[in-house]
């Protein structure tokens, strides 16, 4: 596992190697004293928001603060979401389009 294995994607650019996110991931690893790539599924940034997807809840609980601190150092204050994927079904039209005007 290396930092290259985690897709780092910016919403308005093609590719999975966004340099800002890569740098944040490296900085977070320095703060944590270890490479955080094994615990992360993906990093994504939409506008100035950071969306981190973790492999498991304990990983998130242990390391999310380091990632948040590295992000804030790099881009300043913005919303950060630390997420765990689920297999929950959804209706895109009702749950996202019709239901998502405010957030």
């Amino acid at each position: 596992m290396s930092t290259d294995s985690v897709p780092c994607t910016r919403y308005d650019r093609s590719g999975t190697d966004d340099p800002v996110l890569r740098e944040v991931l490296r900085d977070a690893g320095v703060r944590a004293g270890r490479d955080l790539s094994p615990y992360l599924r993906a990093l994504y940034t939409h506008n100035d928001e950071l969306i981190a997807t973790w492999r498991a809840r304990p990983d998130r609980a242990t390391w999310s603060e380091m990632l948040s601190a590295a992000w804030r150092d790099k881009v300043g204050e913005s919303r950060i979401l630390h997420l765990i994927p689920t297999d929950d079904d959804y209706d895109f039209q009702e749950d996202v389009v019709d239901n998502g005007a405010d957030e």
Binding site: V6, P7, T9, T16, R41, A42, T53, L81, H82, L83, I84, P85, T86, D87, D88, D89, Y90
Partner: peptide
Amino acid sequence: ERLPRIKVD
């Protein structure tokens, strides 16, 4: 890991 999905905060 890039596909649309429901995630929990």
